[in-house]
Amino acid sequence: MKTLLQKLVEESGPPGAEEKIRDIVKAEVKDYVDEIFEDALGNLICVRKGEGKKIMLAAHMDEVALMVTHIDEQGFLRFTKVGGVLPHLLVGERVIFSSGVIGTINHEKIKELKELDFSKLYIDIGASSKKEAENKVAVGDTCVYYRQFTDLGRRILAKSLDDRAGCAVMISALQKLKDDRINELYFVFTVQEEVGLRGAKTSAYRLDPDFGIAVDVTRTGDTPEAPTMAVSLGKGPAIKVKDSSVLAHPQVRDLMIEIAEKYKIPYQLEVLERGGTDAGAIHLTKEGIPSGALSIPCRYIHTPSEMIDYEDLQSAVNLLEKILTARWP
């Protein structure tokens, strides 16, 4: 699973340009599903036919990114954020475009750190003129953090674990499924989650499932002076109770808890005060779809160095596999 995760996090998938991730996922799942297609927005929908309830799973392929808005006479690029990125985390950071062009971010002269905002930052791709820069990059191109997968033993450090960790969990759970076809399963790898849960909205409309489960990362409260939150790395995957986009449906939440207890899979309960996930869009589709979420605890979300616990990840796969093969009410 580490190899799969490494492949997923080292590729880039800015919102609206998730094709590279889509290709990796497609290759991984194609032998395990009955049908696979893309919709108008670019969601990858993988269907595994079955008898029982229709369950939609969603993990998003996109990651936070930057978009070029202007190229100046000296060849420096100005940019805006795509998704939640903080300016101070960008100084000195390297970024990579889908063409392979790499650059570094720095800032104009400032007196105090609090003056630092996006208008003060620029990307330097080593071009010495506007013309040279324009041969490599165009306005509208997007780039992501340029970082490697780092295996720290039990813990993993990488960019875009939000939400390639979720993608990896879904792929691994799918690959573990035996021949029994208890439920009809829709594995949806969504687009544009980071800019407003957009892919989940249209794919849920199309599939109209009986239940929805998002597989995403969640924040932890286990770092020095972190805002209080009862989720830690290493204590198992989190079963969502609420975030700002959804109150997990009690039926879905309780079933997940029951299964975790039954198979003695460690879990935590997640009450996330700020932040949302694809379940937020799914549960309000059409007449309403009971939805919940399985979350992987993750430190430093949206930074170039997100951290998860590998045992949490494996437990998440085990729990998800059991959830998908359970008899749903």
């Binding site: 919709d39 808005t69 202007h70 795509v82 509208g140 249209t202 409309y205």
Partner: peptide
Amino acid sequence: YRRFTSGATDAGNISLSKEGI
């Protein structure tokens, strides 16, 4: 190009209608 990424238009809601447009 519109060199600005704030603001919103009808395109947001239209593109997310039904199965996506």
